[in-house]
Design a binder for these strands. Structure first.
Lengths: 192, 192
DNA sequence: GTCTATAGGTGGATAGAC
DNA sequence: GTCTATCCACCTATAGAC
């Protein structure tokens, strides 16, 4: 149920907003900057969105939904092997952060800027994505591939992945897939 | 050389600013909010700091220097064992984030809000702290306790630790030290 | 070192014409 | 669906008295 994003025009604007929110941060991005990037005047923006908050909510919904879709697809291709499923999730996560649109980055780093009502509306979407992670972590735990508390392991892995946004250069020598594999290798060195 | 923080009064104000910056974020924290928290009027703030940027720089310098000091002390107590040294670093890091003041959180999460000149002035301090991490990681790698690229492993571990700020509840059942141990356990399961 | 008062600017958002 | 024009709240920073 996509209540927030309706028209194709709105979706296009949402995509542009995501880019600016990543570059400047939500608070520093003004409606005038958004409008200019979209090729319209600031007043026109409010024909598509009630207020600036609603733009953020639209971006975050888009980003999380997209991450969920990509993760689901990746898991289908990964088959049943817990090792390859975990690796697939890590790769999918970095794909949404770097090679895909920027909306997921906004969802992760600007979540706190959502007002309470938007947060309530979107939290189940975020929870669904995290539940997918815990599921795959559980499989790896049961298979004895990794060790620790399911909850904590999920948080640590997601933290390590999310923080790459702060230092990883996509233009460098390593691909996002490389990164994902290195992380999996770090917590699961021997694959007997 | 602490050029930025001079008077004790200034240090006290810096501590209060750190708290607000963590709660609200730098951009959303107004000089009026800062002044009120400090029990003065907003105009008086500029007797202590040239502008809002300088407050941020003071907080970040304080936070990073503090993290460096605490890490050094922890390593002295940890002795020579690579395992306990790595654990000591992880515990020290979470200590600066949760049980110590909030300044290190600001240093990590608001670094991008520094203007270029302040960033240039503070980056060597941040680099010194990260170099300490890489050093300890190197020891653990050489001892065969962990595996992977020294650079990537450092980033992943720091990312996992930093992201705890977004989900960990210090009022809950687990202590920061618990968290640190669980992370070390995740990447180094067998501790003979 | 703190106050009052205020300058000077920019922010989000609205109204109504086209 | 976009424009122009504009309101006004709030923000950073300054000046000068105490």
């Amino acid at each position: 149920m996509n209540v927030i994003n309706a028209s194709p025009r709105r979706k296009e604007l949402t995509r542009l907003a995501a880019q600016l929110f990543v570059q400047e941060g939500f608070d520093r991005t003004t409606v005038r900057m958004l409008a200019q990037e979209m090729g319209i005047k600031s007043g026109s923006l409010f024909h598509h969105f009630r207020d600036k908050q609603e733009i953020l909510a639209a971006v975050i919904e888009e980003g999380t939904q997209n991450a969920l879709n990509i993760a689901h697809r990746a898991l289908e291709l990964a088959g049943d092997d817990p090792d390859s499923r975990l690796r697939a999730m890590a790769r999918a996560h970095l794909e949404t952060l770097f090679t895909d649109r920027n909306a997921h980055v906004v969802a992760l780093f600007e979540w706190r800027r959502l007002d309470p009502s938007a947060r309530a509306h979107l939290s189940h979407l975020r929870d669904a994505y995290e539940a997918l992670w815990v599921e795959v972590i559980d499989e790896a735990l049961e298979a004895g591939l990794i060790h620790g508390d399911r909850f904590l392991v999920s948080r640590f892995i997601l933290g390590a992945l999310n923080w790459t946004v702060r230092w990883y250069d996509p233009g460098g020598s390593r691909s996002p897939d490389d990164l994902a594999d290195e992380l999996v290798f770090m917590i699961m060195p021997k694959t007997p």
